[in-house]
Design a protein around this nucleic acid. Sequence first.
DNA 1: AATTCGATGGGCT
DNA 2: GCCCATCGAATTT
Length: 196
Amino acid sequence: MFTPVTAEFFHAPTLELSRKLLGQILVHELPEGIVAGRIVETEAYMGAEDRAAHSFGNRRTKRTEIMFGKPGLVYTYQMHTHTLINVVSGPVDTPRAILIRAVEPVEGIELMAERRGKHMPMKNWTSGPGKLTKAMAITMDHYGSHFSEKPLYIAQGDPVHAVSVGPRVGIGNSLEAVDYPYRFWETENPFVSKFR
DNA sequence: AATTCGATGGGCT
DNA sequence: GCCCATCGAATTT
């Protein structure tokens, strides 16, 4: 079974934590069973100084409020018809966050299949930030919970051997921030959303 | 009050 | 590759 990491796990600089999250297990305990996926792709959003971040310039709204809170909090938001999930990072009042962009299914395959359609190949179930939230039944109801507490939490996984680094996806109008190397993924892992 | 736009994904051409 | 779904926030009227 899985055990949540402690809150101290999240007390690391944002870019370091982005790498450290690779290989950890994202777990959701549902009434009908457990779904879990190994994190294989993340992106760091560096708060007030990062034009691509929702909290750029310390912008504080009902949506971004959680980014100013403690590390390890869950920041979910809607992108068109999809829910995306982030790990809040940085000290309190330093509004940084890490987007979880892809996971590799490790448990609850049947439950994920029900949500993602049995006809679609498994590599398409969780290979993108909107896909994995649907596969794992993550919704806006999780906004503000903590990744060290059930039912939605992070558990320790196997170490990642090779990490690739590159620019973030889908932030084309963020001026100087477009090429910042804030995206991290497990090299060659087939569940990564995109290659460059 | 209305409009614009995005850290996206799926279906169709 | 193009189009659309349809959410919250910021900007404009």
